[in-house]
């Protein structure tokens, strides 16, 4: 009887081992993805910024729960020592910065969805539906999207600093564009399936983006468009690993969540769960 129980236990354990995030398959995938992932989570109440290792371990909050405000959209500084995020602290949505340990919180300006320039000297962000660049050395700002484009979102800096990719909402559907950082006419990348949330690959050759349901990849010239996730439910917020070999993204049962973070090879393949419980969104990987 005991022997049967031990065998049953071993079988169950091996089955569970095969399914768990720390399975050999998962280890292999996560082995390619070193570094840290910062994300927003509502598991402790309001939305807060959390951090973990890229293998899903050491999950801990960076911002604390002392207010009702929501902290979302974290983004690592290129040197990995500080983080930009959007917050409703103080009652008005703004771009904030903090040290990577969650200390030294500082409000930069009104707006949201901020991302650092590759040299860390400027930020791109959204205010009143326009994509703006702000020079942090002198606080000067300029709008890079056309004046009459009032529904833009998700500005993302190309690794060579030359372009900003973003989404524009038009006739209730999002479209992808990029525009030179020095200003100019936006170039359309793709206008189907509600494409938004573009992010450049580390080598600048590809953009990951999301449709209403899936994560996709496309060249900046609009060619080689392909699905990377094609699972049931909703996949959102695809972000690259620093080496460009993996993506971290959010998987939701529906548009209302709950959301969990998953890892997947950048070429597509089997996703591995990283988080569990509450809702976890807006990852960024360094």
């Amino acid at each position: 009887m005991n022997r049967k129980l031990i065998i049953l236990f071993l079988l169950l354990a091996s089955a569970l081992y095969g399914l768990s995030p720390s399975s050999p398959m998962g280890e292999e995938l996560k082995g390619g993805g070193k570094g840290r992932i910062v994300f927003s989570s509502d598991r402790s109440g309001a939305w807060r910024i959390w951090m973990m290792q890229a293998d899903g371990s050491e999950q801990h909050p960076l911002t604390k729960d002392e207010t009702d405000a929501n902290d979302v959209d974290p983004c690592f500084h290129p040197d990995g020592n500080s983080i930009l995020f959007s917050s409703t602290r103080g009652g008005k949505i703004g771009v904030w910065r903090m040290s990577v340990d969650g200390s030294d919180l500082e409000r930069i300006c009104d707006g949201d969805q901020a991302e650092w320039s590759p040299d860390g000297q400027r930020i791109v962000f959204r205010r009143q539906g326009a994509i703006r660049i702000r020079d942090l050395s002198n606080q000067e700002e300029k709008i890079v999207t056309p004046k009459d484009w009032t529904d833009c979102s998700g500005g993302a800096w190309s690794p060579d600093s030359q372009y900003i990719a973003f989404a524009r909402l038009r006739e209730n559907r999002n479209e992808l564009y990029y525009v030179p950082t020095i200003g100019g006419e936006p170039v359309k990348i793709y206008d189907q399936k509600g494409a938004c949330e573009p992010h450049w690959s580390p080598n600048g050759n590809l953009l990951v983006y999301e449709t209403e349901t899936h994560i996709c990849m496309i060249q900046p010239d609009g060619k080689k468009n392909r699905l990377i996730t094609y699972y049931g439910g909703i996949q959102r917020y695809g972000r690259w690993s620093p080496d460009g070999k993996h993506l971290v993204y959010c998987q939701g049962m529906s548009e209302q969540g709950p959301w969990e973070l998953y890892l997947i090879p950048a070429t597509g393949g089997t996703p591995v769960p990283l988080t569990e419980g509450g809702s976890d969104m807006n990852p960024d990987w360094k």
């Binding site: 399936k193 049931g232 439910g233 049962m253 709950p258």
Partner: peptide
């Protein structure tokens, strides 16, 4: 429709609806 534990690889009619029409 899916529930919280539906395998990722399984598609239900409402997944198809969202994926094609963009709405549930």
């Amino acid at each position: 429709d899916r529930d919280r534990t539906t395998p990722l690889t399984v598609f239900c009619p409402i997944d198809v609806m969202k994926n094609t029409l963009g709405v549930g």
